[in-house]
Design a protein around this nucleic acid. Structure first.
Lengths: 149, 149
DNA sequence: AAGTTGTCTTGAGTTATTCAAAACAACTGA
DNA sequence: TCAGTTGTTTTGAATAACTCAAGACAACTT
């Protein structure tokens, strides 16, 4: 079934007008399995199947796929750039302040007005980005444990 | 009047439980004049009055003041960290995608619900951060000019 | 099957930021 | 007012994430 997936990914690449190469398919596969990964993590995930690859190649692939609109790049404060395949639905993210884990948060519909600034100071607004910061379940447990000592 | 301001800043530092030093006053002064500045810009602004200072000192001061709650650190995607003195009012920012200029945007009141994620996936949410991306008036003019050629 | 175009590999370089140790200065109490 | 203590700054070096450039190579076109 890996072949099936690969073929689907190849189509995705072709549809975007990109050449289908092993590194690109491998990066897409890795990001399907582990979303919100940074370049180094993806490199690690890709290395076993592509022994000759380099971190720079991963950076290049990520840049190409992001430009083509196949990936979304997110850059939470304090983290390196993360990438995800989920695109086109303008969802948001919540980041754990303890362990930097990232989780998708569906866009709250019906509240679009709040994402229009009251006074944009003459700026033409293109996009609104919302990031939530909090503590993930695992870290909540860990913290509770610690305070119980 | 510089003295008056310096005295006020000194009080601000003391109230926060920090020692009053020239670098700290100078950094606060610089950030009063040029908000949304990065460490290097602040270093440049501070250097004339503090010839012996270093960029690392500025980093140290910024970290201390941020920890003490006297500064807010913002890290827009693609920029280095910026600092501002306006704190405690949870306002947002709009960043120009052309020139990276940053402008304050007052928090849109009366729409708090939209900043509560629909499903936080078990996360405890502390803060919601909103960033707007757009084109500043200057760059709008520049772009219009260019397209008119 | 060959050519062209775009991609990957290899290697080096840049920028923002952090770390560590010693020199130094600000507040405390005498 | 002065010495002591504690915290800050200076100096120097190191790190991490990312970018740039040139040649080797592979994917799609005809």
């Amino acid at each position: 079934m890996e072949t099936v997936t690969d073929a689907a990914l190849a189509d995705t690449l072709r549809e975007a007008g990109l050449k289908v190469t092993e590194p690109r398919v491998a990066v897409l596969t890795a990001l399907t399995e582990i979303p919100h990964s940074d370049a180094d993590t993806i490199f690690g995930a890709v290395l076993p199947s592509l022994p000759g690859t380099s971190l720079q190649a991963v950076y290049g692939v990520l840049a190409a796929l992001t430009t083509a609109g196949l990936l979304r790049k997110i850059e939470p404060a304090g983290s390196s750039a993360l990438y995800e395949r989920r695109i086109g639905d303008n969802h948001h993210h919540i980041v754990c302040t303890e362990c930097s884990a990232v989780r998708d948060v569906d866009c709250v519909v019906g509240h679009a007005p709040c994402l229009t600034p009251s006074d944009a100071g003459g700026f033409t607004v293109h996009t609104a980005e919302v990031n939530f910061w909090g503590v993930c379940p695992d870290c909540q447990n860990a913290l509770t444990q610690k305070s119980a000592d």
